[in-house]
Design a protein around this nucleic acid. Sequence first.
DNA 1: ATTATGATATATAAAAGTTTATATAAAGGA
DNA 2: TCCTTTATATAAACTTTTATATATCATAAT
Lengths: 183, 183
Amino acid sequence: MLKYALLGFLNYLSASGYDLKQLMDVSTSNFWHAKQSQIYTTLKKLEGEGMVVSHVEPQESRPNRRVYQITEAGQAHLREWLDQPLMVIEPRKETLLLKLFFSAQLDPQAILTQLRLQRNLHQADLEKYQTATRDVISQFAASTDMADDAQLWEAARRFGELYEEMFIRWLDETIALVEGWEA
Amino acid sequence: MLKYALLGFLNYLSASGYDLKQLMDVSTSNFWHAKQSQIYTTLKKLEGEGMVVSHVEPQESRPNRRVYQITEAGQAHLREWLDQPLMVIEPRKETLLLKLFFSAQLDPQAILTQLRLQRNLHQADLEKYQTATRDVISQFAASTDMADDAQLWEAARRFGELYEEMFIRWLDETIALVEGWEA
DNA sequence: ATTATGATATATAAAAGTTTATATAAAGGA
DNA sequence: TCCTTTATATAAACTTTTATATATCATAAT
């Protein structure tokens, strides 16, 4: 799946592995992320498959950059994936839910500590989507003439916002439930 | 992570790999899932680590069952994991969002087809949480005296319900956005 | 003035986790 | 007769994470 993310970015602009990592961190991290090592190995694999080509750009006072460019085959491969509708719901993995599911044997106070800690983390995440992420997208939208693209990026950001609102609501409900056990 | 899910179930009752797959499918699939092959190999690994022990139960007219039982070491290992709070937010991966992020080059009608298809899937999932999953939990709660456990399972089910409501809301917003492009 | 750190930049090895595919075997229902 | 359910197991492939290595510049702290 990561390969489509990389092809998706390279379809907009040529970039190095380092660039792609930065791009993902500020744009898709809400719904797709990857470690630096995976990005570098996947780019190498994509080059082997003819989906991208690369050249080294020498730099003074900085290590050389290896810049990747999408090929026609890469564009066709990306397009094929975009065209074909997703027929399933992606199964989620939520470690917090798994822990909670088996936590009845814990002290209620220990459960509450864990839930409140997560509430703080999700609150911070929500605020990030409402400020920093929002600003990045609106700046990019204003600086280019890609109105449709920017609207889809905004929709993706909006998902993160709604997700965090939902998560906080669920945490508040669940905290109230466990608080009731002590009475 | 799967190992904790298996230990969590085995802490309630002894079970075979087959049983554990069925249990996960009707209870944790909302936030944790695994393939049969992974369950079998993980159980074998857990046995090698002394977390569980197994014995074969011969059956007439059915293949023999290998039933796993949690050990004291296994219980301690589970307990340790449950005790230690989760300090991070689990990064999500949502293929639909990734596709949408790069879909501006597609025909708006193709985007709408994909979003509406997902809406149907999520609507069906939501109804499943509101009926079948809810019934399984309330039946189990009534048949045992594990009130706290059942309330946490209900909280986990509730997460699935809120998640699907949120997803459908986001899909409706996004469908309306793309519908606006055609005017 | 020196030291520490963080950012820029790429790369690989090893381990861990997960999916896909395949094999076997028998009962029971459509 | 065919499909589904019950039941376990392994090989191969793929994906992802963790850890480590190298090198330089700019800035901040001591």
